[in-house]
Nucleic acid binder design. Structure first.
Lengths: 226, 226
DNA sequence: GCCGGCAATCGGGGTTTCTCCGAAAGGCCC
DNA sequence: GGGCCTTTCGGAGAAACCCCGATTGCCGGC
């Protein structure tokens, strides 16, 4: 847009983080038709991303929330610290505002879902590169709803009360991971995960481990209907 | 679609079904470098797929399991009926045994996960086009475990190898009951229930308690599809 | 600036469940 | 009778669960 043709050599550098190779290929393909953008690197895990990104000097990072071996939320915080000038566009499978809200609060600049078309993704990328924020319209309208009605409303009455970490752990429980596995994935002590399980149970009014598991399973698989 | 002009080599026709546009772009990109393959259409829902596929006459369909508005499992059954000559490659996010098993039993020819590299996907596609089956190695080895005693019914679902009591216990696990609760409900010792849990795991090829819980939940709630 | 609250992280210690191993009684089939 | 499977349980060690803390750090209020 504002870039004159005489400066065509300076391309915007994009870095890709997603644990699904096919999604990285898709993003690469999508960006390959954009003349003033180039992919300056990619990673399939948070660790790999943190290793490569400082050297790659990207102007923007497109990243998935649910990485295999660690937490996408942690990656956002780390990237904000390590590479504060890079814009962060989260490209998630979930259209839940639980995630969008937390992601933006943690310093990301945009949030779109994988259901969205590729044109939307490019548009979002352009906007955040201009210093703006972007969320997909459906998520945006729901974000606005929550501003008017605090506390008891809409989707889940008490899910909102969970902290970022707690929600993350709930997600993993629902994905079938055990306490030990979650601890390793988040690089935390087993005791810490046990604490989170208790906190979640307390906040959601659950009384036993099986109840927690049941709740988590249903919550993770709930969005398959609409 | 223009008619193939003087093109002597008839290309293999691939149809894509996935509700994430970016994944379809990735698959398209992946196949674009394969000289004897071409994408003959795509769809983002089961309904759309069933409308377009008969006309598209694909040799193979790559489809996601978890579609937005319906079940990928049902789509497999429908496609087998509507278009029996097309090979079906399921491209899923889950590496859980539960899904792979059901998918293959319902007539799909291959099962790979999105964590797999794109070369693996192309290789799987080649194999199933030759009339073979393909599952990712990790899933394959565990599928073989469930066939420990071949017996009479080779293609029988492993769930049918469970005894009455075992099935009963599986049902209760999937309903969210804990070991102690099940024992009391059946007026049996806790140790007996523990034995059943182990037997079920052995027969289904599961390796941990959380996997068993996951399987049980999915099995109990499987009727929620369609 | 101080204080209360909450999020994030971990530990201790007791209870329960999981996991692997074994075993006894009964049934079925050849 | 000799396997083979089912149903039922026990022992012992590891893991997870549950109820108590504790510390650090951040953020908002007064």
């Amino acid at each position: 847009m504002a870039t004159p043709k005489t400066q065509a050599a300076k391309k915007t550098r994009i870095f890709l983080v997603d644990d699904h190779p096919i999604v990285r290929r898709g993003l690469q393909f999508m960006l390959s038709v954009e003349p003033h953008m180039t992919v300056c690197g990619e990673a399939e895990s948070a660790r790999e991303a943190l290793e490569k990104i400082p050297a790659a000097q990207p102007d923007a990072v497109i990243l998935d929330l649910t990485l295999k071996a660690s937490s996408g939320l942690d990656l956002i915080k780390d990237l904000r610290r390590v590479c504060p000038k890079a814009k962060l566009l989260v490209f998630s499978m979930h259209d839940e505002l639980y995630f969008a809200e937390r992601v933006l609060r943690n310093g990301a600049h945009g949030y779109i879902t994988k259901e969205e078309g590729t044109e939307k993704a490019v548009e979002a990328l352009r906007l955040i590169l201009q210093g703006k924020k972007y969320v997909s319209p459906t998520v945006a309208s729901r974000l606005l709803d929550t501003l008017g009605a605090p506390g008891s409303d809409s989707a889940g009455p008490s899910i909102e009360r969970l902290s970022d970490r707690e929600l993350e752990v709930l997600q993993m429980i629902g994905s079938g991971l055990g306490t030990r596995a979650i601890a390793e994935k988040l690089h935390l002590s087993v005791k810490t995960i046990e604490s989170y399980r208790e906190h979640i149970k307390a906040k959601l009014g659950l009384t036993s481990a099986t109840e927690l598991t049941s709740y988590a399973f249903n919550w993770v698989n709930r969005s398959r209907k609409s």
